[in-house]
Each structure stands twice: as C-alpha cells, then as structure tokens.
C-alpha cells in the first residue's frame, strides 16, 4: 500500500465535499451531494416497511424507503438503538433514508483517502475506499453503492424465498 499523497487527496474530492454518517462505532463517508436532507427517526413511518427496510419517510411529495444499517453494514429489519437521525440520500436511481447515530458535513482538508487494501476487498461490498478522519478510520461509499447493496440483499432474499416455496 502506498503512502497517501496529495494526488490521492485531490483526485478523490468532489467540489462539494463529503458528509460523515456515523453508525455506532463505524464512520461512513459519502459525497455531500448525495445527502438531500436530515430528518429525525421519530418521523419515520414504520408501517409495512420495505424488504430489508424499517419504514418510510416523506421527502416532498415522495414516500421514500428507510433502511437501518448495522455497524457491520448489514441491513437490519428493526430500528437499532442510537439511530436518532434519518439521512435522506439520493442516487440517480432512488431517494431513500439511512438511519444513523449522527450525521454532519466534513471539511475536505480534514480527510485523507487511501485505496481499500486488496486483501480487504470482497465482491459486492459498498465500501470503495478508506480514509482517515480526525485520527480514526472512515469507510468511503456513496448512495449509489449503498443502494446497490440493498438491492442485492433484497434479491438474495427473494431468491431464498423462491427456493423455499
């Protein structure tokens, strides 16, 4: 693994910067532009949640699915403790909510990116890179990567259901 360089840093920075979503002890970094709004988890409608989700949140005229990631980035079917914030994020494909412990914007000069070590890469993982932020580790992803992971988990569930019936 090479030492982080200024090139790594500049190549990885969208102009708008990044946002940090904390999920228990894990820190997830996504492009700031992916965040639409921060809502409160108490405003999530938990009736008839989507597959791998925990409920729905209103965003303008839309009703968007809400998902609760675990610290290990699994998709839980119940709202975990200490998830007071619902970050409404958008990929090109869909707008959806992510429950997290806290969420905030981070300055570009406070974060240093590094490639995900090859030994840690697994197929389908939504984590694209790693980073250091305030002396700790952060995992870099995006709304699109997280949505792809959710859809993949839902597809696996559907397949299992088909096999069982």
């Amino acid at each position: 693994m090479s030492q982080p360089t200024q090139k790594d840093r500049s190549a990885s920075l969208p102009e708008s910067g990044f946002a940090l979503l904390r999920v228990d002890q894990a820190s997830l970094v996504v492009p700031r532009d992916d965040i639409r709004i921060l809502e409160l988890t108490i405003d999530v409608d938990r009736n008839e949640p989507p597959s791998r989700g925990v409920g729905w949140i209103a965003f303008g005229p839309q009703r968007c699915p809400v998902y609760c990631p675990s610290q290990e980035l699994g998709w839980m079917d119940a709202v975990a403790e200490n998830r007071p914030v619902c970050a409404v994020v958008a990929s090109e494909q869909r707008i959806f909510g992510l429950l997290c412990s806290e969420a905030g914007l981070i300055a570009n000069d406070e974060i240093v990116f590094q490639e995900l070590p090859p030994a840690m890469a697994t197929p389908g993982s939504p984590i694209r890179r790693l980073a250091t932020y305030q002396g700790a580790l952060a995992c870099v992803s995006s709304a699109a990567d997280l949505l792809a992971d959710i859809l993949s988990a839902q597809a696996s569930d559907d397949l299992l259901l088909e096999e069982a019936t």
């Binding site: 894990a26 290990e72 980035l73 070590p117 840690m120 790693l130 250091t132 580790l137």
Partner: peptide
C-alpha cells in the same frame, strides 16, 4: 479499526505513520 464486509482474517486496520 474494523472494516465492515472485509474478510474475517483481514477485517481490521491499523493507522500507522499516516497510513491505513
């Protein structure tokens, strides 16, 4: 630090001399 979804035998990282 734990890296979610990494293989179990290599699921943690050390921050050492500004490197992960």
């Amino acid at each position: 630090f734990e890296v979610p979804r990494a293989p179990r035998h290599c699921s943690r990282v050390l921050i050492w001399q500004d490197r992960i």
